[in-house]
Design a binder for these strands. Structure first.
Lengths: 203, 203, 203, 203
DNA sequence: GATGAATGAGGATTCATTCAT
DNA sequence: TATGAATGAATCCTCATTCAT
């Protein structure tokens, strides 16, 4: 390696590359412990270039969170919203599938970041709430309502908060983030919960 | 004024006061954003004194987490372990009571700190797991087992992971930490879950 | 659109346009606070082009100062040097006129820049001294001498330093630069001074 | 020099020492080119200590300017304000004395800094105006008025702006700051102006 | 010529930690 | 014990300058 060119210029999407590197670094170290220099190095660019695209570290953070949410949520939630399945089939199928994927997905990382940094970034929290949480909860609510309409579920099924479906997913997520090495069959956890709820709701 | 009281009003437990102040500050700002100076000011002592009792910021952090766990867990879990109630009564009563308290308790704060800082402090995670999580899960397991022995619960009740009891508590905790301003009846959530599980487990 | 005009509207004098933009920016922000980027934007060119004409920021600065001096001084001093007026008429007329214009002219800006940056640019200071100050002082000296020769002024008029004529102009300039919002009739100041000096010098 | 103690702790007034060092550095390099590190080094302290006393570089700058003004102005202006001299004696004596001192005094440096940085620090400009300029002008005005009352001066003397007295001082100051190596008898300049004005004003 | 993406040295500021008193 | 002045490594961010296109 005699002398590599000092100035690189690539076609690829530099902002996205930087955001990707930033996401990984934030994921590993958290917001405060992440140094812009590390992000840049990871992205294979200079520190200065990072600042060309993201005015401040906070900007970068926000961009990264929104970026992940935007890119991932549709591929996770999207296909859940339009379906021809019966409500029961939906809950047992796509929803469960979705929930099983979340704890290992980048969304889990985002949640960790929101838990840590949320209080300092209320706009991010709102963004996340509206684009992920509210949509997810509403999707569940709709399917339960449809089940009731169709006579699949008892009227009382509507009383359950949709959060109850997601609780084991939440626990699984936190468990993996914190107790990665302690055993827990998280998939089993979520399956049990769905069965529990279906047994209760079914007509 | 030669005859001042010989005994200056000496704070009995400076280390504890510092730890308390530190806990509050870590709770408010997180680990990285907490300045030792603020902790000292809050405790009403000098920065130097903090270093007399806690060698580093990290030491202080660890001490604080363990300290909270030690002081709180027994008052939360303790009275749960010995009881003369039937298993059902226990689950519906003391356990539910306990779970409702957690999301607003210092334990929730500790969990937030572990979610953020855990990866950098595996020993803390282990400590927490052994002293809180494992004990809590075991307690639940025992009561389910006792219920089966006594014929209150079906044999299959043992198949359920005790985590299922705690899932809504986890979700409630995170919800309060992140979405403090979004509505959610967290108590209702936990009650529903207990009913759900009891309906399933009962003979 | 193949038949676009073959001759792109090419700016005739890019270097001059850049220098103009630079002058305005230096005037507003001072040397250190001026960013090449801003200059380029103001000139409507790219940053790179600026560097094509001016090797460094300092080069640009020097070029700008000299440029202003060259372009302005003749229009200010020029017409003062050749005149058929009597010495008194000259001093009361063109010289006063000249002095009144200076505090609001680009020359005042250059002086401000020299006051700030002069110590780091002795060559600029010399350039300015020779092309502006020395010429101005000499012009005054000549007119006083001519007045003496012609018997308009007393012999002792020669003893006065020509700087005395310029002192109120200097004060007016600084006043406007620093105390722009504090009232001061600077024209009146200069008129008084000329009258004062004439009264003293007249035979 | 085997091992000098890392931690110094002196009785002297550290903030003042830092301000002094800062003044010298600002004087030499101007605001922007002054590095806090240099100031600290010059004061014989660490960079961090500077920030203990002055929150930002701008704070330091303001403190320094005000500090110089406060410390110097009274020793310059103070003794001028109360006097038993006749107005003429005062103008020819103490006032002239004062004016001769200014161009070589720290006040000249402050003026240079205000000329450079004033637009970015209007509060400093106001502070300087009120504490130095306005007071100086008023003192002159008072003496002229007193001279008129006493019959020393003609009534028309009041028409002259007091700034006229100060104009050569201003020019001298700027001259020394910018053209330090070019010859000019600045004292002579100021003396001439006083004589000029007295000749005009005297009854 | 002309562009603007890319670089990296430089400088302000913070804060954990030390230690003279 | 107790204090808080003092230190300096660490990090964000800026911007003059370069160079691939």
């Amino acid at each position: 390696m005699p002398n590599q060119p000092k100035y690189q210029r690539r076609k690829e999407d530099r902002p996205q590359e930087i955001a990707d590197a930033a996401f990984k670094t934030f994921a590993e170290k958290g917001y405060a412990a992440t140094r812009i220099d590390d992000v840049a190095k990871r992205a294979g660019v200079s520190k200065g270039l990072t600042y060309l695209y993201y005015k401040t570290k906070e900007d970068l953070f926000k961009a990264v969170v929104k970026n992940v949410v935007i890119r991932r949520v549709d591929s996770l939630i999207g296909n859940v919203e339009s379906t021809e399945l019966s409500s029961e089939e939906f809950l047992r199928g796509p929803l469960l599938e979705f929930m099983k994927k979340v704890p290992g997905s980048p969304i889990a990382i985002v949640i960790r970041l929101l838990i840590s940094e949320g209080p300092r970034h209320p706009d991010l929290v709102n963004y996340y709430y509206e684009n992920v949480v509210a949509r997810g909860l509403e999707a569940i609510r709709q399917f339960v309502a449809r089940g009731v309409e169709r006579g699949e579920f008892r009227r009382e099924a509507l009383d359950h908060q949709p959060h109850l479906f997601l609780a084991p997913m939440m626990l699984s997520m936190i468990w993996r983030l914190v107790f990665a090495d302690k055993p827990l069959d998280t998939d089993q956890l979520m399956e049990s919960q769905v069965e529990l709820l279906l047994a209760e709701m079914k007509a």
